[in-house]
Amino acid sequence: MIPPFALARPASVSEAIATFADAGQDAAWYAGGTELLQVMKMGLARFGTLIDLKGLPELRGIAVDASGALVIGGAVTHREIERSSIVGRELPGLVGLEAHVANVRVRNQGTIGGNLCFAEPHSDPATFLLACDAHVELWGAGGARELPIDGFFLEPFVTARTPDEILLAIVIPKAAAGEGRAYEKAKFRERPAVSVAVRLRVAGDAIVEAVVAVGSMTDIPVRVPEAGTALAGAPADPSALGAPLAAGAEAMAELDAVGDLDGSADFKRHLAGVLLRSATRAALSEAIARA
């Protein structure tokens, strides 16, 4: 059974922050509960107060801001993202990703902000958002700040967020002309065994820029700059990517992979190379459509 706690339901972010301050170090933010309630059940964490963020209007919406960036509230569920026509139009790769996070019950309950703040190394959204150059908006006792998602994850289950800070929203830049963003994973159980995200931009007949991220493989989801470099300059033709993809796969094979129940480190390095191919082709196809 979950150890006893008090449940607070603030009506606004400022009230939530005041509630956290009153509770001292003994409070945790609570949204979908798909991770927090599990670790509390297992006795890995104990809090005197859970502060429920699900109802806060500041964390609830999906919108496009003045710069054209996609803004997703921290308490938006995976299922709401999957079903959002705005996300479908602005970032279709995220809809496809969200449709396959864990299982339908987790998607109905779990939130994107909770997923990122829990920082499970096998997070689906973390890897994709890393390639998409997203940033997170935080608000805590010391005021508001923005952090790039590249650098937000410090180690497994640890982020740059301080305990008093709420993840208000995730902001994903608008796709540039000729830009495509895709995510592919291999999954045998609830979480990915390995996942690869690719963002690339085409101009004329060539890929001029590429960012590659890999998840569920190293300690935390990481960008693989050498794989991006291998793709930059390649022809914007899915049938002519053999050598760049082989070079990219070699870069993946250099990573400090961690074996787990889903496979050995060697197997994961192999999968990463395979997934790089499919993610690159998917991103290229979207990029050409947007060119």
Partner: peptide, 8 residues
């Protein structure tokens, strides 16, 4: 659909 085991 939700998991009643992990829902307060």
């Amino acid at each position: 659909a939700i998991s009643a085991c992990t829902y307060l």
